[in-house]
Design a protein around this nucleic acid. Sequence first.
DNA 1: GGGTGGATGTCGCGT
DNA 2: ACGCGACGTCCACCC
Lengths: 233, 233
Amino acid sequence: MDHDASETRNEVQAGLDAGEMVTVFGRCRVDYDGRASSELGPGDRLLVLKPDGTALVHTDEGHQPVNWQPPGCDHESRLTDGELHIHSTRTTPEETLDVYFASVAAVNRYAVTDDSELSVSGTEADLRERVLESPSLVESGFEPRATERGTAAGAVDIYGVDGDGNAVVVELKRRRVGPDAVGQLDRYVTALRRESHDGTTVRGILVAPSVTERASELLAEQGLEFVALEPPE
Amino acid sequence: MDHDASETRNEVQAGLDAGEMVTVFGRCRVDYDGRASSELGPGDRLLVLKPDGTALVHTDEGHQPVNWQPPGCDHESRLTDGELHIHSTRTTPEETLDVYFASVAAVNRYAVTDDSELSVSGTEADLRERVLESPSLVESGFEPRATERGTAAGAVDIYGVDGDGNAVVVELKRRRVGPDAVGQLDRYVTALRRESHDGTTVRGILVAPSVTERASELLAEQGLEFVALEPPE
DNA sequence: GGGTGGATGTCGCGT
DNA sequence: ACGCGACGTCCACCC
């Protein structure tokens, strides 16, 4: 049995038991099996184990971890064939992640306290507030009546009426949109037209900073409209 | 000037200059400005700086970094008001990330070599192979003619013909699908019907493990079909 | 560089 | 738990 690996394992397990964040840097291979499955051969990577049950395997490249396990998983440290072996499992869906370290360059443990909340601005919610405060940005005479109004096709971002008494469905997007957003708006408009048994006209307006060419064509085909507007800030 | 902070900064900068992966654990606050903007007050977090220009700020919770910078950014270490300050920038879009450390518990540098490729199975591509090898899984008599066939509404996953000579559009999803996938399939079918000047019938089939209730209704409304099929493995 | 859609997407909210 | 849609989504691929 590799004595260093044994000590390393004890260090990792102590961190896990203490509810600390544990990082392991070393040469490892990784197996994942669950919703999909993957194999990753040997290489130098950073493993991050969080006290909430998250596991992240990061290579030298990319924002995304090459392998991971979401929060709520159980992490175990083992000695398998003399190697440090991290075994992480979850249920619903059943998923396992196994990281085998041929060598470990460093193990670190961190006691974490973090009470601060992240505050973000420039989101779709901010755009919604902007429209609700100044409905004329969408169109003169537009009057919002509800947000998240339910329809058979899902919840409409802003539901209201125009100056002529027509129903208006507003779909908000914080950034430039493609065909998917048009499809979304179309589903809501179609559902509302089906639901309005009287002859009320239902208009659909996509509110976003800009649209792609294809999205613009789709809007025209469906008789939907577009208003250019950005989130505040 | 804080001597420790100065040494810490030198260590971080040396790692960045050497093209190593650098981790910093400590108490910090974070400012981000770009496509959106955010502020995060003091707390204990792990900062990961990758040689490809990625920056990740991880709290004790969650799969997602609380703040980040994607690959390709320039990282600088600074001493600002005696604190270690990491300043990361990118262009198109213009974005900045600033991490200010009130205290640093540990800095680590790792020289990384990783030649292995991740191999994943159970993806949509695997499902496509399964259908192409056994087209009858979709329907007896189905004959695939093309993958990624272009239409005015985008590329169709699998295009083919059925036993009666009708055109068939197959949209593949590796997992249970909702209304968005139906909208996608509908866009392709509508586009192809518009493009087929002869009277060819165009059928749309959604191939996925399962569908939600709402998606099922939408399929019925649009006269589209569903075939239950999972990716192999 | 922009468009388009996949992803082990994750995350939060509502039912 | 599942459905649904947002996300600073990221990411690969094609144009």
